[in-house]
Design a protein around this nucleic acid. Sequence first.
DNA 1: GAGTGGTCTAGACCACTAG
DNA 2: TAGTGGTCTAGACCACTCC
Lengths: 260, 260
Amino acid sequence: MRSPTFSPLYQQIKALLLESLRSGEWRPGEAIPSELDLAARFKVSQGTVRKAIDELSAENLVVRRQGKGTFVATHGERQVRFRFLRLAPDSGEPVLVERQLLDFKRVRAGAEIARALDLKSGDPLVMIKRLLVFGGDPVVLEEVWLPGNLFKGLTPAAVTEHKGALYNLFETQFGTRMVRAEEKLKAVAADAASAGSLAVPAGHPLLAVERVSFTYSDRPVEWRRGLYKTDRHSTGASWGELVPRSNLSLGQRNQCAPAL
Amino acid sequence: MRSPTFSPLYQQIKALLLESLRSGEWRPGEAIPSELDLAARFKVSQGTVRKAIDELSAENLVVRRQGKGTFVATHGERQVRFRFLRLAPDSGEPVLVERQLLDFKRVRAGAEIARALDLKSGDPLVMIKRLLVFGGDPVVLEEVWLPGNLFKGLTPAAVTEHKGALYNLFETQFGTRMVRAEEKLKAVAADAASAGSLAVPAGHPLLAVERVSFTYSDRPVEWRRGLYKTDRHSTGASWGELVPRSNLSLGQRNQCAPAL
DNA sequence: GAGTGGTCTAGACCACTAG
DNA sequence: TAGTGGTCTAGACCACTCC
């Protein structure tokens, strides 16, 4: 017997759940139906639904809470799970972050960003330029580029007034949830303008982080370039072991700064 | 009924398997007993053993091969799984890597490295300093510090003659398998000596990567500091989605350079 | 107590590998 | 053909949350 296109049942269920997430049938923060309900809906056993949800949970698309239900993941809550590159102070405890909006404009896409965001040159874009200040110290200077059509109503005021990560704003106000990201890191010398914003001499070494963020179905919906002053902060990463250790209370080691 | 120390059966099984891995009962590359054998040994059902192995597999400690068995993971094979920070050329295809040993000595631990490796100041250490050259271009200058007691027979010749990643040498010759790592990244200016090795002017921006690697039971066994010339290469990271996608042939997106 | 996710079992069958 | 991992089921029971 040949079955060249064999796909396990639970993967098909997962795809269906993913489609419901993508379409917004269940919104961020809401509970999805119980495992038994879903099993009945799809006419499979609870175990099969369970395995599908296991994978969604491992990918941080949903969050299980024993006794309560399974919820669509959100960027609002304190998130140990969704791990973009994170910044931590070299010494001591984290300080408050302040976000200064430096620029906001709508422009037409150039070739590079168009390609990264799967758009055509000349398509409308939103550009946000801002400075992140930690305890009075300017640490990150970044530009964020978004597809203009997806963020039609986005205004400078909305960005300024919003408390919390941009990703939270994107998902609550525009229904676009970032699900995955790819980053490229380089060390660069500060140019005159960046140096000024970050209060360092021109030529000072900075960490340049290029990030493409994706929503469901691997659709790219954000391009970022950040310049990090790493004199008193480091970006940290942890490899090789998964974060959530189900039960077993072996003290958290992956303490994270909030995603920026 | 209270059960404050509740631990699922499969977690207990996992701990037993972990202990067998740690003790070397099954060596890297070897097959571990079949799921049915293990179920019989531990007097639990196959499903319970399976769930324990699921987690070990998710942590890249073992590798499953349908129809063949489950094998202790290894640093030798082409590894898509074990993902330390990876370096990729900005343009085009990867080139051959050449490793030049610059220094090798046995010294006593200072305070900083002693603390990182959970040793006492004055304990014996091995220090390896080397240069990684990609297609004729020196790109990484790094120092590796190891507990001297764990690597008693390690010689400069062994390092020089070994083909492949150091981690491969460590595991095949010294039975120490790196299982997890934590990294801190900074942008720094090249000092005179480093600049010379990397063929850049002094003050040139470099990416500094500090890494602590751990073996089983979270025991730290390596401290590294690397300086990366990122002019023509980037270090890449990918967040938010798990790598191995079981079946579903949706083209690999996490192409990796070899771990260094 | 009712409902949810979490664990565990026993057994059947499928897909893959190898002798 | 035998042995391995991979899928799926049905059902029982446990742990947690909320009313």
